[in-house]
Computed example of a mutant assay.
Amino acid sequence: MSIDTHTERRRPAAAQTENTTKRAKRTRVTPRRMWLFTAIIGIIAIIINIPLLNSILVSFKPDGEIAQNPLGLPTNPTLDHYANVLYASGYDFPKFFANSAMIAIGTVLLVLVIAIPGTYAIVRLRFGGRWIIDGASGLRLLPAIFFVVPFFILFSNMGLEDSIPGLIIANTFLNLPLAIILLAAGLRDIPQEMEEAAAIDGAGVFATLTRIVLPMLAPTIVAVSVLVFIFSWNDYLFALVLSTSNATPVTLGAANFITSTGIRWGDISAASFLSTLPPLLFAVFAQKYLVSGLSAGAVKG
């Protein structure tokens, strides 16, 4: 009687294992299906990047060929447009590039300095309550143009107009809600027992944050850094309103090729392509951490 009872208890586990194996076989992706998915994703990627690809082609075409054949391959490739961008008088591309780099890097550093301890206080120390995360989410949904006029008036009175620190503060304000949301999701994935063990060993809040939490939160921090860098580098609206000459970034500097005599499409395309290289390379090299950081909090066991 006991043997039969033991056998009956084992049957559900065996049946569950068999069902799991069958589901795994049914959901297994075949090589043919994988190639199909890859081809579809590749076609979508090409369609999305057609403007970028066309801009690269235009940057290698002479001016006359741009007007005659704007969408085709260049028949007489030239580097004149890149020479104009880098060495033309009245267009200081190295200065614009340096301004963009200082604005983007400064924004990343300031966002991390504010967001990491702030998010830790919200999630772990229960500072402020859930409404802060909800408020950050709502603030991120507002269009950037909503804040342009208040920032212009404020910075004009504070003497921060047309300055690198002013644009860093403006971009920090725009990107801080996104950083708080992503860091909060990453913090919730870290087992709190490790922090409690550190507290038992005598570690304070600062030591726990720097020695326990930050190493485990590194993928999310990298993801936040990449996104904030890209968004700050690509900012055009605040640069247009808050800068005139001293703090002009590359996104706004390309507009200098729109003159009274016409639009120099080749030079604009060359400047645009050069300006996309830093965030593109940054994202490619940090792709592993970017994916893992963005997926933080997406799966709950």
Rank of each mutant, 00 (worst) to 15 (best):
G186V: 02
T172N: 04
I44Q: 12
G138R: 13
T251H: 11
W233S: 01
I116P: 09
T38H: 10
I268A: 06
I133W: 00
I103M: 02
A13M: 12
P279K: 11
A67M: 08
P94Q: 06
V113I: 14
N49F: 03
W233F: 03
T78E: 07
I103F: 01
Y82K: 09
A255M: 10
F147V: 09
T248Q: 11
A170Y: 04
G72I: 06
A14Y: 04
A286C: 14
L174D: 00
A286Q: 05
Q16K: 15
V250L: 13
F155Q: 04
L86Y: 02
L160N: 01
L182F: 00
V29M: 15
R140N: 07
G204K: 15
K288G: 01
T220A: 02
A247Y: 05
K25G: 09
S2F: 04
I44D: 07
P117M: 10
L183I: 06
R140Q: 04
L182M: 11
F147P: 00
G72E: 03
V123Y: 03
Y236P: 12
W265N: 06
Y120S: 13
I145V: 13
Y82M: 06
V222R: 01
A255N: 11
K22C: 04
V213Y: 06
F257E: 02
L174F: 02
N175H: 05
A223G: 09
Y120M: 11
W131H: 09
A144L: 15
F93A: 05
A14K: 15
T21K: 14
A255G: 07
F151Q: 01
G129M: 08
T261L: 13
T27I: 09
I190D: 01
T248P: 02
I50G: 12
V291D: 02
G266N: 08
F151G: 00
L281W: 04
G186P: 01
L109P: 08
G202K: 15
T248S: 10
L53A: 13
R9I: 14
I48W: 08
I44E: 06
G293V: 00
D189C: 07
I66F: 11
P77A: 10
F231Y: 05
T7W: 10
S163V: 01
A121I: 10
L174T: 00
M1F: 08
A203M: 13
F285N: 01
S295T: 04
N171P: 06
T261N: 15
G297V: 00
A283M: 07
F206W: 07
N19Q: 15
V123L: 10
G262E: 05
R10L: 14
S225V: 05
I168M: 08
K22W: 04
N157S: 14
P51F: 05
L125C: 13
L252S: 01
R264F: 05
P51W: 09
